[in-house]
């Protein structure tokens, strides 16, 4: 029986335990740093290095196995299940912060401006949005407008979704040139997005008085857009790896899970942004 009808089961794995050790070291270092210990950052960087080594090692292993034809159709299905439910868990993670924004705007801020809370605690507080609360936590600030960099960023991400799909068509049509060009465009747009976001954050901190500490508006704003920006970076790095593999001739029209996973992830990041644009910036 040929290998491609059989389900590949590795007999041992060394990367998982190395990756776990790296992540744990990183978090322990971070916790030490938060507690004010001076050795914290060093431990954190050591952990990060171990983690990155693991990522490189593990993904190289997977790529080589995949290219040598060790993964049959069923293995591919398992990977797709894995990626799909991983993205689902990420959606839930974002939903928590969207839910927080909803709860704050529609329930807790209005409650602060009415009834006994208002009378007894903060008589001068009027319910508004954006707000940094009755205590004016973080001082005066200017809210972020949707029309400007955020709108530009929306166009950028939407375009990157198109270039990503165009690259996929190239892959399916065995047009490697189109595949690579499409991917490079996607990655470039992704990093452009992150650059613009960095400028936006810089403006917020230096000119608008808007920081993570600007009450609940600042908290939800930076938490939502910050986690999203982090995901854009991760997605762009994954896509860069896919560019690299494409240039080495990896992927076939019928077998290109890594490409698909990266594209799913990218579209997920894209859709989250649309939610952000509407709920954080627009309304």
């Amino acid at each position: 029986m040929s290998t491609n009808t059989a389900y590949y089961i590795p007999h041992k794995a060394t990367w998982p335990v190395i990756g776990t050790a790296g992540l744990m070291t990183m978090l322990a270092g971070f916790a030490n740093y938060l507690n004010g210990s001076s050795i914290g950052p060093t431990i954190m960087i050591i952990g990060l290095v171990i983690f990155v080594i693991m990522l490189v090692g593990w993904f190289t292993l997977q790529a080589n196995e995949s290219e040598s034809g060790m993964y049959n159709h069923e293995v591919g299905i398992s990977y797709r299940h894995g990626m799909m439910w991983f993205i689902f868990s990420e959606i839930v993670f974002f939903a928590v912060f969207f839910g927080t924004l909803w709860y704050t705007r529609n329930l807790s801020v209005p409650w602060l401006g009415e009834g006994a809370t208002k009378e007894l605690l903060w008589p001068s507080f009027e319910t508004t949005w954006p707000t940094n609360g009755p205590g004016k936590v973080g001082g005066d600030f200017e809210p972020m407008s949707a029309w400007g960099l955020p709108f530009l960023n929306t166009l950028i991400l939407l375009t990157s979704g198109v270039t990503c799909t165009w690259a996929h068509h190239g892959l399916l049509a065995k047009n490697r040139d189109q595949l690579i060009k499409g991917l490079i465009a996607t990655v470039a747009l992704g990093f452009l997005f992150v650059t613009f976001q960095a400028i936006e954050y810089h403006d917020a901190y230096t000119e608008m008085g808007l920081t993570l500490g600007s009450g609940v508006y600042g908290s939800t704003f930076f938490m939502l857009t910050g986690f999203h920006g982090f995901h854009v970076c991760v997605g762009a790095i994954i896509l860069s790896v896919v560019v690299f593999r494409s240039s080495k001739g990896h992927f076939k029209p019928e077998n290109h899970f890594a490409f698909e996973a990266a594209a799913w992830y990218w579209h997920f990041v894209d859709v989250v942004w649309l939610g952000l644009f509407v709920f954080v910036y627009l309304i």
């Binding site: 927080t100 807790s108 609360g133 009450g215 600042g218 908290s219």
Partner: peptide
């Protein structure tokens, strides 16, 4: 606790009940 957000702090517009 560590980065000055106000998710659960009423003075900043948040809510511990959340």
């Amino acid at each position: 606790k560590f980065f000055h957000t106000s998710f659960f702090n009423a003075a900043g517009g948040g809510d511990p009940v959340l």
